[in-house]
Write a protein that binds this DNA or RNA. Structure first.
Length: 830
RNA sequence: GCCCGGAUGGCGGAAUGGCAGACGCGGCGGCCUCAAAAGCCGCUGUCCGAAAGGGCGUGCGGGUUCGAGUCCCGCUCCGGGCACCA
């Protein structure tokens, strides 16, 4: 595509200029009102792909726009540089993960620069650098000290193909590994956890005030999964010393409990199992233990599950009725939630209903279902209704009955109100090399002991062997492994596990506020100044994990004293950018290479590619990369060519009095300024581009009229300059290179367009003078009449009724009603 | 199964309850040119009509309203999230 200007030369010139001038560097004591613009820092995977381009184009637009608004914008960037791909590459090729990663960082940094994205590069951080590791480890120690980090036995995901433990997020919905496709196994290992559950309620309730996309908030709410109910003891029949505690969200249904269930892993299974039942129970437990996720899923959908279970031989007493009911062991009850035991009420719970019918257990309804319920298939009824068969609860609605039943338990000291969460503590141990080492040592005498802070950072040695053994290479490195106990000085062994990389990304935005700090993770004053992030941009795939962890971490850092006074919510606005798809699927790497941004930087240039990403559709929507995409990108290049030619054209300019056409063009200019400003404020980037295109069309038509073939009075110098200046300003955050170049050529020696103030529209000119008034008869448009924008209701009606087209449409009928919305519309109803 | 989104020309997409289809892509026609490319101008929802003009039209069926792409109720299809959490 032949271009109107040397795109490559212009873009490189300005990229160099911004870097040399330090235009977007900001000091911590900057006096301007702050604005913190942040894109999720990327995992360095090599040159940018189109997903990056989209993300960082949105972010850069915000940085430049807010700067022109006069804010002191903090625009940092860094790299999420720990992670499995680098370690896998090391196993495969022998290259050290750091060498591999540093090379990928250089590539991605170069891509971002070519995109024209601007940052305060002095603040760049890499999560694998000792200067960052040190503080991640210190934070770990402080959380440990505060009881927010602890060690416990836990089942973990083990991938036999990768020979390593996986993070939960690396296990797909069907229980397979997202890299190798192998079925993930469960293993019990002692692991490190962060006590995120302490903050469950706060993390839940604070969501209400966040300006986030609703679906992201809903995902977090579901993930936290708060449920209110009651917990109480079921006395084991004939065993006054033994009871089973259960949790229920439906204490109102207690009179309908016809059996109880405990999880196969429940500690009381052995005690409750009679000799006669032992072999059946053992068989069930064995199967449950061996069972993998995928095998359980294969049983079918939950509603039709074979509710496998075995009778223990014991009975417990229903405290409400005094009746004994049988206790079963069944794998549909999970040890990890609630108490690992339930009262089963088949009439009001679908799972219990399925189990009860399969095992021939009685069913007692305690809520009156609708009259046609059983006729329409029946089953468990979980809706609202009147309580029945429930003694003192009879006649009540469910909400009242729940409260009454809970009170009844509390009065008798049998149980109490209880809130449970689906959210579990965050398992942070990883049996990997390429992550932040956990700063702990094991001493035979003193157990697990924290590494003293003055010994940080603990950095992994370079001379390790990368083998797919399923253990961190650190555990074979004698020099690293052996140390001394900080308490007694005796021989001790280092922790060889590293931290989940989500730990690194849970506080990087705080480090950005003060990346130079050498005596603490960051200066709280700097964090107080810049936090919270005013605009956070990144993929919705991080809606739960990263965003939840970061919200937890910010609170935890405040509470352990590392960030006093900092806002407890790190991200005020979150723009969840949509994914780029090809053929309806998420982009694969091989396909992604075909549309590599570098190719477009070389051909149409970064400005046109940016404009395309902004123009293609709403930023939160997924985008299909199709055959047509190429042509749309070229269209964006054509637009910039026209901009170039128009800005540098030299029509004959006149001065003096302005004509009506001059006035019309001026009004178009000011309306565009108003429209684009509004669009940028509401993230409607595609319409902002459209409005700029419209204005260029208007200005071009205006100029062309003066070429001799139009019927205008020619181009007025003031109108011409006002129009082009506004257009270049409005486009500056969108296509920064070409606008900077054109501005410089039109205003030699003056400050760059990027240092100009964002234009403000003249309200007088934004207001329309005349408006096309629509006249409807019975809601159908019959005429369009140009009227004064300030027309009165009476005049509007008069004009409407005088219209020949309206008279014809009325055909002599008398209006029964006239709805007037001057100056836009009059609707005549007959 | 449950919970969110979404459905508008050939395509991407615009439209505070008030002119549906802005802007762009593609297509058609024209100008320029020896010719092509580039550029420029015009047309481009659909049906009827030579035209003027008119009918119909925002997934489907109802409703509210003077007026519905927009609000309400009931579906269909597509996308996403969660799926034995008691």
């Amino acid at each position: 595509m032949a271009r109107a200007y040397d795109v490559d030369e212009v873009e490189r010139k300005w990229q160099r200029h911004w870097a040399e001038e330090g235009t977007y560097e900001i000091d911590n004591d900057d006096p301007r009102e702050k604005f913190y613009a942040l894109c999720m820092y990327p995992y360095p995977s090599g040159p940018a792909h189109q997903g990056h381009v989209r993300n960082y184009t949105f972010g850069d637009l915000v940085v430049r726009y807010q700067t022109m608004l006069g804010k002191g914008v903090l625009s940092p960037i860094g790299f999420d540089s720990f992670g499995l791909p680098a370690e896998n590459a090391a196993i495969k090729t022998g290259t050290h993960p750091r060498v591999f990663t540093d090379a990928r960082i250089d590539e991605l940094r170069a891509s971002l620069t070519r995109l024209g994205a601007v940052y305060d590069w002095r603040r760049e951080v890499h999560s694998h650098e000792p200067a960052y590791i040190k503080w991640t480890q210190l934070i770990f120690l402080r959380l440990w000290e505060a009881g927010l980090a602890y060690r416990a036995m836990a089942p973990v995901n083990w991938c036999p193909g990768c020979q390593t433990v996986l993070a939960n997020e690396q296990v797909l919905g069907d229980g397979t590994c997202d890299r190798s496709g192998d079925v993930v196994e469960r293993r019990d290992l002692e692991q490190w956890f962060f006590r995120i559950t302490t903050y469950a309620d706060e993390l839940l309730y604070a969501l209400d005030d966040l300006e986030w996309p609703e679906r992201a908030k809903v995902m977090q709410r579901n993930w936290i999964g708060r449920s209110e109910g009651a917990e109480f003891d079921l006395q084991v029949e004939g065993r006054p010393d033994l009871s089973v505690r259960v949790f229920t969200t439906r204490p109102d249904t207690s009179f309908g409990m016809t059996y109880a269930v405990i999880a196969p892993e429940h500690p009381l299974v052995d005690e409750l199992t009679t000799d006669a039942q032992r072999s059946a129970v053992e068989e069930l437990r064995r199967r449950a233990a061996e069972e993998t996720e995928i095998e359980r899923m294969a049983e079918g959908d939950p509603s039709a599950l074979d509710k496998r279970g075995a009778f223990t031989g014991s009975r417990v007493v229903n405290p409400f009725t005094g009746d004994p009911v049988p206790v079963y062991v069944a794998d549909y009850v999970l040890m990890g939630y609630g108490t690992g035991a339930i009262m089963a009420v088949p009439a009001e719970d679908e799972r219990d209903w399925a189990f009860a019918t399969l095992h021939g257990l009685p069913i007692v309804r305690t809520v009156q279902p609708p009259g046609d319920w059983d006729a329409n298939g029946g089953g468990a009824y979980t809706g609202d209704g009147v309580k029945i068969n429930s003694d003192f609860l009879d006649g009540l609605d469910i909400v009242t009955a729940k409260a009454r039943a809970t009170e009844w338990l509390e009065e008798r000291g049998l149980g109490e109100r209880k809130v449970n969460y689906r959210l579990r503590d965050w398992l942070v141990s990883r049996q990997r090399f390429w992550g932040c080492p956990i700063p702990a040592v094991y001493c035979d005498e003193h157990g697990v002991v924290p590494v003293p802070e003055d010994q940080l950072p603990i950095v992994a040695p370079d001379d390790v062997e990368f083998l797919p053994t399923g253990q961190s290479p650190l555990s074979f490195h004698e020099g690293f492994l052996h140390t001394t106990c900080p308490v007694c000085g005796g021989p001790a062994r280092r922790e060889t596990d590293t931290m989940d990389t989500f730990v690194d990304s849970s506080w990087y935005f705080l480090r950005f506020c003060d990346p130079w700090s050498t005596d603490r993770p960051f200066d709280p004053e700097a964090a107080r100044h810049f936090m919270p992030v005013d605009q956070y941009i990144g993929g919705i795939e991080h809606a739960i994990l990263h965003l939840l962890y970061a919200r937890f971490f910010t609170r935890a850092l405040i509470d352990v004293g590392l960030a006093p006074g900092v806002d407890r919510e790190p991200f005020k606005h979150y723009l969840a950018q949509g994914m780029i798809r090809m053929d309806g699927t998420k982009m694969s790497k091989s396909k992604g290479n075909l549309i590599a941004p570098e190719h477009y930087f070389d051909t149409v240039g970064a400005d046109a590619l940016r404009l395309f990403h902004l123009f293609a559709g709403p930023p939160f929507d997924d985008m299909d990369w199709s055959e047509q995409t190429e042509q749309v990108i070229e269209g964006c290049g054509r637009f910039l060519d026209r901009l170039w030619r128009t800005c540098l054209s030299e029509p004959d300019l006149r001065t003096g009095e302005q004509t009506d056409e001059d006035g019309a063009v001026r009004r178009a200019v000011h309306r565009t300024v108003a429209d684009v400003t509004k669009d940028l404020e509401r993230w409607s980037y595609n319409t902002a581009v459209a409005h700029c295109m419209e204005l260029l069309n208007t200005v071009q038509r205006y100029a062309r009229g003066s070429d001799g073939n139009g019927n205008t009075a020619g181009v007025h110098a003031d109108v011409w300059n006002e129009g082009l200046n506004a257009l270049l300003s409005l486009l500056a955050p969108l296509s920064p290179h070409v606008t900077a170049e054109l501005w410089e050529r039109r205003h030699p020696g003056e400050p760059s367009v990027h240092l100009q103030s964002w234009p403000t529209p003249d309200p007088e000119l934004v207001r329309q003078e005349t408006v096309t008034m629509v006249v409807q008869v019975n809601g159908k448009v019959r005429d369009r009449i140009e009227v004064d924008a300030g027309i009165s209701e009476a005049d509007a009606q008069e004009v409407a009724l005088a219209s020949a087209k309206v008279i014809e449409a009325l055909d002599g009928a008398t209006p029964t009603r006239i709805v007037s919305r001057p100056p836009r519309l009059v609707n005549i109803v007959v």
